[in-house]
């Protein structure tokens, strides 16, 4: 019980900390659609400085600048594509968490599919190989088989 209370208090304090951090920056929007677009963009754009964090996640000054720019553009009526293209023109494809399909990223997109396909073909081939052709026994093997079966049926009848 005591441990549970301890864990709970830690969880609560973490969530309060998170809320306080999120309040550090406040952006006003004219419409709900703009706010949705801003939220979507700030989660999909990657901070080039602190890699593996989106700009909404990151506390780096650069991420703050980028959030400011995205907010500015969204307020000015920019579309999703316009903002993404703006950032890509400056920071490269890297800045967007959805890599485009092109020569250098094609392996990302079709790789898993290809591996699954190869695996399925392999298994399919194995199964087919097992079924193929009846086993033909030599006369010697036939005799051994008959003897073994004979022994077995005698045992069974006892």
């Amino acid at each position: 019980m005591r441990i549970l209370a301890f864990v709970l208090s830690i969880l609560v304090s973490i969530s309060i900390l998170g809320a306080v951090q999120a309040q550090g920056e406040f952006y006003a929007f004219e419409t709900a659609a703009q706010e949705r677009l801003y939220n979507k963009l700030s989660k999909e754009l990657r901070c080039p400085k602190c890699q593996n964090q989106s700009i909404s996640d990151s506390d780096a000054p650069l991420a703050e600048d980028m959030r400011k720019k995205v907010h500015e553009m969204v307020l000015a009526g920019a579309s999703y594509n316009e903002v993404v293209d703006f950032m890509k023109a400056r920071y490269g494809d890297f800045v967007h968490y959805r890599p485009p399909v092109n020569a250098s990223t094609i392996i990302l997109w079709v790789g898993p599919l290809l591996v699954a396909l190869i695996g399925m073909l392999f298994i399919f081939g194995l199964v087919r190989g097992q079924k193929k052709g009846d086993v033909v026994l030599t006369a010697d093997e036939e005799a051994k088989l008959a003897a073994a079966l004979n022994k077995h049926s005698q045992k069974g009848s006892n």
Binding site: P48, K49, L62, D65, M66, K69, R90, Y91, G92
Partner: peptide, 12 residues
């Protein structure tokens, strides 16, 4: 304010 730096794609 980092205006030109942003246009240059400076990240550090």
């Amino acid at each position: 304010s980092g205006l030109l730096a942003l246009d240059l794609g400076v990240y550090g």
